[in-house]
Amino acid sequence: MAGQEIEDLVKYLARLPGLGPRSARRAVLQLMRRRESLLDPLSDALQAARDNVKTCSSCGTIDTRDPCTICTDPRRDESVICVVEDVGDLWALERAQAMKGRYHVLGGCLSALDGVGPEELNMSGLRSRCAKPEVSEIIIATNATVEGQTTAHYIMDMLDDTPLKVTRLAHGVPVGGELDYLDDGTLIAAMKSRR
């Protein structure tokens, strides 16, 4: 239908989450129509990201510097480390401005099905960070799924011999949630962790 370069662009855009071949084609059409205002800046931004994005050697998040912006921010509480599964979870907590400490990205969670064991996750990095004297609390913010909670229990066992305070996110009724519409699992978790 179009030249190979355009077809390639459609093909790669269609691989992104939320985009299928049709929506990718529409996006490409927009890019072609608005070359100067959209295509050129996007191309520059992609090139810059490709050249500069690194994985933080301390926490495992992605940023354009190493150590990342969060790890080098002096206003953050270095005594608290929040452990998350993926960079997306870190971004969610940052969006909510819910955490003033630092983070540690595991890069996934324990999953027998996908062959992900502790060796495949950034556990050794967490252990060495926990040994630093300034660290006093670890917040485990893994997902409330069977695999996420299995990972949380594993980390708690791993840090059992340290003097650190280890806490986990609460599970329960979401803000604005009505009991009648909640799933049974959330209700059970909420009732179990009532205070």
Partner: peptide, 21 residues
């Protein structure tokens, strides 16, 4: 259609969760 959520009951207990898993 959701039935009884045994997984949710086990989530907070490492022994139970490893048993169910």
């Amino acid at each position: 259609d959701a039935g009884r959520a045994y997984a949710a009951e086990a989530l907070s207990d490492p022994l139970l969760l490893s048993g169910v898993s």
